[in-house]
Each structure stands twice: as structure tokens, then as C-alpha cells.
């Protein structure tokens, strides 16, 4: 299984780079994955990543993009709850990139 090295420790990922063990996650790992993805983590990026982690903690799934967008809109306001905003932060898609940085599995139903 592939691994990533962060702070001298190695962590298992799947073939696409998603962390295998949710519990492994920390901010350094997030920054590491973000760098690989060419995402420069700003406050706004962290807001989405933390939102995803909270969502997962509550519902035990990574949300589909449509569901994430709606949930963010509800909680953080309509200026953030739209796909344009989310795709500007994560050009390859909030599901593909934000979930990966958040240490979550790929969203169910995401192909």
C-alpha cells in the first residue's frame, strides 16, 4: 500500500492518495497532502476542510458535492455555499481535493 511521509512518520494511503486511517489525520498531514495537490491552504481552505471533518464526524460519510455545497451555504452563508467558490478553492473539486486534505474517504457516489 502507498504511504506518505510526514514529520518522519509514514501513513498509509490508497492508490489515489486518500488516507486509509481517519484517525491518522492531523494538520501537518493536511498541509502535506495540500502541497501534493498544489493547494495553498488559506483560512478559507481550512474552513471547508474543518467543515468536512465535522460533517464526517456527525454522519460518518463524506458528503456528495451537491450536499456539501448546500450544507456550507446553510451554515457559512450563500457566498460560500456555491460551487464557484468551492471550485476556486479546490480546482479539482471539493470532493476530490478537500476530502483528501481532510483525511476523509472519497465521497460515496463520487466517480
Amino acid at each position: 500500500m502507498p504511504t506518505i511521509e510526514v514529520n518522519g512518520k509514514s501513513y498509509e494511503t490508497d492508490e489515489e492518495g486518500y488516507l486509509v486511517n481517519l484517525a491518522d489525520w492531523n494538520e501537518d498531514i493536511a498541509n502535506h497532502i495540500a502541497k501534493v495537490e498544489n493547494v495553498d491552504m488559506s483560512q478559507s481552505h481550512w474552513e471547508v476542510v474543518n467543515f468536512l471533518r465535522k460533517y464526517y464526524d456527525e454522519y460518518q460519510i463524506a458528503p456528495a458535492v451537491r450536499v456539501l455545497t448546500k450544507a456550507i451555504g446553510k451554515q457559512l452563508g450563500p457566498e460560500k455555499g456555491n460551487s464557484q467558490y468551492l471550485y476556486e478553492l479546490f480546482p479539482y473539486g471539493p470532493a476530490k481535493q478537500a476530502c483528501k486534505i481532510a483525511g476523509l474517504p472519497k465521497p460515496t457516489g463520487c466517480v
Binding site: 456527525e58 454522519y59 460518518q60 460519510i61 458528503p63 456528495a64 450536499v67 448546500k70 450544507a71
Partner: peptide, 12 residues
């Protein structure tokens, strides 16, 4: 434990 996921259905 996938039971919390039933509560996500509303969002879907």
C-alpha cells in the same frame, strides 16, 4: 457504525 448516516439522508 453507519447508523448516523441515516440522519444525513435529509441533506440528500
Amino acid at each position: 457504525n453507519f447508523s448516523p448516516t441515516y440522519r444525513a439522508l435529509e441533506g440528500y
